[in-house]
């Protein structure tokens, strides 16, 4: 839970800019980009994801290293299970 997962933003939700589709090792899920709004996230950026929220932008090189680190720690499986588990679909609009 404490080690962050690297992913690449492939799309920002056109209706809700705080949601983005992120790809992690081929798996695509929606994550919340609300905590990196000041870094102006855009498609193509690499981010570190923690419990479904992007925490910071990182370089592509560091993203690949982080993935490698997770596999060396034996946590890559667990990280992918986490990513696959993110169930954030398009939420109901605020009322």
């Amino acid at each position: 839970m404490c080690l962050a997962i690297p992913g690449k933003i492939v799309e920002i939700d056109p209706a809700q800019a705080h949601l983005g589709t992120v790809e992690v090792a081929g798996v695509r899920r929606k994550v919340d980009l609300g905590l990196i709004q000041e870094e102006s996230p855009a498609a193509g950026d690499w981010v570190l994801i923690h419990v479904g929220f992007a925490m910071t932008k990182i370089s592509e090189r560091d993203a690949l290293e982080q993935m490698r680190l997770l596999s060396m720690l034996g946590e890559a499986e667990q990280a992918m299970e986490e990513v696959r588990g993110y169930s954030l679909l398009d939420p109901a609009p605020p009322h």
Partner: peptide, 14 residues
């Protein structure tokens, strides 16, 4: 239930 993100728990409530 296991969730992987607090946002997923909120989604479950929705």
């Amino acid at each position: 239930r296991i969730v992987y993100s607090p946002a997923d728990a909120l989604q479950l409530a929705r």
